[in-house]
Every structure is written in structure tokens, then in C-alpha cells.
Design a protein around this nucleic acid. Structure first.
Lengths: 347, 347
DNA sequence: TTGTAAGCGTTATCAT
DNA sequence: ATGATAACGCTTACAA
């Protein structure tokens, strides 16, 4: 076995074993931080590892362990910004570990979604998955993960699962606060553009909206409640409807920024002054919020931090460290120019 | 070997071999579509495979082949929209294959970037990688991939490599067209907000800008050329400078949408009417382009299609099919409300 | 505390 | 055209 043959090859566990004069298994123990190890041996092996620049082959480990060092991100395309923030949060948590991130968009709505995901998880033998809303709200999916022994953490707008399987933001409270802010500024006729039925986040945000009104003893006509799909054009449609109303709302809370941009669009088309004639508040604090004119008052939820925490829960699941990771995250109101007291005094 | 033991297990190649009365190797041949195979045997094995629902274990394959069935996406965070479009393009191409997508953001600027990527590629033994701009413009990176036997395809704004390693958009020509459009509408005083130095796309777009002016025999003061970083705030800064000029430009071409939004911001702050007092054209057609007011005239490059093609080039690299995939993609001008003839007639 | 032997599920080599 | 046998690099019994 001429050593120069290995020049371009990466060193294997065998090379390390040979060089340090121990068995493969001992090297394996060092790698896996086995507690029952002579400190001397450990050091010796460690040195050789460093010297050779040895790194365990993930594929071989995967085969032997029957488990890959891959974390999956399963999502149904919320919005680009969100997905990417989640990715960076996860990757930040994974930095320095052996884990890699595999992304898997799926199609909620497809009748085979669950089966697709199962096939994916089983085949790849993922170490764990992070589930994004709205599919994270699917309990059957969580059960599926459990049943095939794949760890999972769900991200969502309310606690849907126990701590080790969930990171949640307090959407309801955050919206209550945002709408209270409008009320404090003097608004009384406040409209709502809600998210789509079936989305937990839409539900939570609506509850927060109602909480704020109730708290201030304000009632608004039913027509002030409109539904959207979280998409821009649904914001436009809702805007049309709301701004046709008499008396017109002096403020509108939109359940996400994209719809808020849609409402703003319509307000502009009608020559309304924002925030003078109409205050608008969004949710998400996507880049568009700060880039449109006027800059949008909105609610920021700590997506990356949540994803970071989710990933840590996943990879530290065995070590019992996961309990340390927070499960509830607080969103904050970002005050910008799109919301101000109504022009003509209190409505 | 009681068969019921395997109930929960996934079937392996051994199960298939046993059931169909052939050797593992023959099953392997069927899986890998070996040409030298009796059609009968093939059928027989195929049937058993279908019956058992057998799927080859990717980890074992990876170990034996010394190559994973993973495609990497290496990027330095252009913008969320772009990265996500690329991801969907790639995943669309990968659908139905055994490949998965692993994302790997890196930090251009970090002195260890190349080493980090090398470590990543070597360890994971990726099948191939898609490289996004701006790091796709790094020739050393391409060489690195080559040297460690990792296939790669670069995405970029000009042909930097041979066909099998490149998908490019024609940024220069697209910008020439966009600026010519402004000229046709009567603009003569046209400003430029260029992208950052060192970015090939910035260079190409600037060339396109100059092409259009030259073609129309127009010269503008040097002060009409400003630089940006592709970020919103740099657009704001450039906007300040440009709108301070006398005579003021009647139109500004921005090398991306984010900067265009920044310029628009400043125009609004100064009470300028867009497009009446100032026409603005962007580049990228990100969601913000259609969501701001007025909707932004911009250049759309077919990101997803390019990524799709890149992925196909990668996975079909061995089959010689790759020659079929296009390498050059045409961008198109999206005409919206932010550009119109200048208010006071020709400038 | 350390080593030996036997897998993990696939593909490659070299027979036949 | 097909099969036995040995990798691939690691881990888990089970010994020692």
C-alpha cells in the first residue's frame, strides 16, 4: 500500500487508524466523542486527525447509522422572503455541524402531498425536518414524521405542538398591539383584510384585530371585515371594496405586507393620501414594507431566529439540550410612515 | 428469514434479488439500465421491484459510487426573490429524478470562501453545483470544481464559460433595448444608476446603457452616471445625487429594481411626479416592481428557466444530452407605468 | 479501555 | 447475459 497513492484521495478512518496505531473502532470512538476513552489515546488520535485533515465521510456514516446528516426544509411556498429567512436561520444554526440543508417545496392542495413527503423522508432518511406554515399546521404531517422516525419542528403562529416540536410567534398579541396603536392615534373606523380561511396565521391575526376593538369598545360594520389570499391582487380587491364603503375606513389593518401593498395601490389610484386619508398597517416586515412609499408600518416576526431555534431543537434533540431553546417568539410593531392620526381629527 | 420481519423495513436490493431469483448484480443492472440484459430478466425484475415498492437506498449508492445524488446551490445571497426562483427552477428540473437540492450560501469577501466551498464539495461529494452570480463569475471557483471532479454550471449575465458550464442572459442587449425605449419616448437626459464594480452584471448593463445612447447619438454629462450597490439605500443615495443635478435627468435607468425603488422613494420625497417629471426603469422584475406605485417598467430575465436548464445540464452531463439545453436566455422589457414620455415635451 | 468481526445497501471486477 | 466476491467507509455488537 504505497502511501503516495492516497495523495489526491481524502484520508479515511483506516488511514487515521494506521497512522495512530489504533483500531478503526477507536478512531470512531474519538469521532463520536465516546466517554470511555483513554485521554492519551484520544489526544494521539486527535492529532493524527488534525494532521491528516481527516473528515468522516458522511455517506458512509449515513449508511451505517441508517440516518443521513441532512435537515429538510419542507414548505409550500409562503413567500420568497420568508423562505429565505428561514433558510438562513437554519443554516446559521447548522454552521459548524455536519448537517446540510435540503429544501423541499411541496404542493399543499395536491392529494398526494403526504405520500410525496413520506417517500422523500423515507428514502433520504433525513435526520429531521423543519415544517413551515401553512403545511406545518397539518397534524397528519406531524404524525407522519413521527411514525417514520423523522424528527420534526413546526413553525407557526401559535403553539400547535409541544415545545420540542414547535416554535411559534405570538401573532394574535402582536396584531392586537398594532391595532391598538391605530386606536390610540384616534382611529375608530378600522378595516381588516384577513388572510385566507384555513390558515392558522389568518385566524390568529383576525383574533388579535378583534381583541383590540373589543378592548377599546369599538364596533365596526361587518363590511369592514374582508378576506384576502395573502397575495397582492387580493389586497387590491379588498382595497376596492373597503374604499368604496361609506363612511370609509380611516385605517386598514392588512394581515400581511403584500396585501397592504395592494391596498396602498388602490388608495393611490383613487388619489387618497396615505397616511392622511388612510392609514395602513401590514404584517411580516418583508423588504417591500420598507421599500414602498410611504414606508409601511408593520409587524415584524423574528423568522430567522425562529428557524434558528427550530434547527437547534432538531440537531440537539438527542442531547436533551433542546429544552433550552425558546419556543415562543415575540413579534414587534415597526412604526413607519404609513400610519398616522386621521387627518380630520377623530373619526 | 421470516418475511414478516421486513414489514416495516424498506425492501433492499437483496429482497428484490431473492424474490425474483436473480443476483444482486442483476437487479443493480436493471436499476442502472444496463444495456446488456435479457429482456425477460429485466421484466421479471421490474415486476418484483414494482410489487415490493423497492427504491434504491441513496446513501448506499452514494457510498459505492463515491458520489452523492445531491445538487448543490452555491450562492452569495443576491436577493431572496432570485435565489428562490432559482431554487424552483432547479427543483422543477430535478422532479422525478433521484436528485435532491442542497443549498449553500457563502460569503464572498471571506478569505476562506474558496476553501469552505472546497471542503463542502469534497465532503459531500456532490454530483454537481449550480453557481449563482456574483460568485459564479469567479473563475477560480470553476477551476476548483473541475479539479475535484464536481460538475458545475454557472449562471451569469454573459457567457463566461463553454455551453455545458454556463447559462447566461443577455443583459447588455436587454438594457440597450430598455434605454432605447426611453429615447424613443423622447427622453434625452437619461441618468444611470449602475451596479457595484466587480459585478459582471453591472458591467454588462452599463455597456447596454452606453450602447443605446451611442446608437441615438446622445451624450449625457458624466455626472449622470452614478454607482450603486444594488441595494435600496444606494438607490436612494444615487437618487439624491441625480435629482440634485441641473438640468435634472428626465429619466433614470437603474441596474436593478431595488435601487429603482430607492430612486422612486427620493423622487416622492421631493414631490416629483413619476413618470411625469421622472421616468424610472429597473431591472429584474422582482415582486417589488409590480407592487410599488407606480408599477415599475423593468427588464425581466428568465431566472427559473435558466436555473431549470442549468440543472438539466448538470444531471444529463453524462448522457451527452446537455448539448440540447439552451445556454443563452433572452430578457424582455416589461412596460409598466413608471416610464412615459417626459411631461414637457422632448427635453 | 480497546480490538475483532460482521454488517449497512449498493456498485465494480472479474469470472463464467 | 449473469453471478460470486470484494470493495465503499463507517458503526454496532460482542469480545478481550
Amino acid at each position: 500500500m504505497p502511501p503516495q497513492m492516497r495523495k489526491t484521495q481524502q484520508p479515511t478512518i483506516n488511514d487515521v487508524a494506521r497512522e495512530s496505531g489504533v483500531s478503526k473502532k477507536t478512531v470512531s470512538r474519538v469521532i463520536n466523542q465516546s466517554p470511555l476513552l483513554n485521554e492519551e489515546t484520544r489526544q494521539k488520535v486527535q492529532n493524527v486527525i488534525a494532521e491528516l485533515g481527516y473528515v468522516p465521510n458522511p455517506q458512509a456514516r449515513a449508511l451505517a447509522l441508517r440516518r443521513n446528516f441532512l435537515i429538510g426544509l419542507v414548505h409550500d411556498n409562503p413567500n420568497a422572503q420568508t423562505v429565505l429567512s428561514v433558510q438562513s436561520g437554519i443554516l446559521e444554526a447548522l454552521r459548524g455541524t455536519d448537517f446540510e440543508l435540503v429544501v423541499r417545496p411541496v404542493n399543499r392542495g395536491s392529494p398526494t402531498m403526504l405520500e410525496d413527503i413520506r417517500a422523500f423522508l423515507e428514502r433520504q432518511r433525513l435526520f429531521g425536518v423543519v415544517l413551515l406554515p401553512p403545511i406545518s399546521e397539518n397534524d397528519a404531517l406531524a404524525k407522519l414524521c413521527d411514525s417514520i422516525g423523522c424528527r420534526y419542528v413546526r413553525m407557526g403562529s401559535a403553539a400547535l405542538d409541544d415545545d420540542q416540536h414547535m416554535v411559534a410567534s405570538n401573532d394574535r398579541e402582536a396584531v392586537r398591539e398594532a391595532v391598538s396603536y391605530l386606536i390610540e392615534m384616534g382611529h375608530r373606523r378600522i378595516g381588516l383584510v384577513a388572510g385566507p380561511h384555513g390558515f392558522r396565521s389568518a385566524h390568529e391575526r383576525r383574533l388579535g384585530f378583534e381583541d383590540a376593538l373589543r378592548e377599546a369598545d369599538i364596533t365596526v360594520p361587518r363590511s369592514y371585515f374582508t378576506d384576502g389570499t395573502y397575495r397582492f391582487n387580493s389586497g387590491q380587491q379588498a382595497g376596492e371594496r373597503l374604499l368604496d364603503l361609506l363612511p370609509r375606513p380611516t385605517a386598514i389593518f392588512c394581515s400581511n405586507d403584500e396585501m397592504a401593498a395592494g391596498v396602498l395601490h388602490i388608495a393611490r389610484q383613487r388619489g387618497l393620501d396615505v397616511p392622511g386619508d388612510l392609514s395602513i398597517v401590514g404584517f411580516d416586515d418583508t423588504t417591500i414594507a420598507s421599500h414602498i412609499w410611504p414606508p409601511l408600518t408593520t409587524v415584524r416576526w423574528p423568522i430567522a431566529s425562529m428557524a434558528h431555534s427550530a434547527a437547534l431543537k432538531l440537531v440537539s434533540a438527542d442531547e436533551g439540550t433542546s429544552a433550552r431553546e425558546p419556543s415562543m417568539f415575540l413579534s414587534t410593531l415597526i412604526r413607519r410612515a404609513s400610519a398616522s392620526p386621521p387627518k380630520n381629527g377623530a373619526a
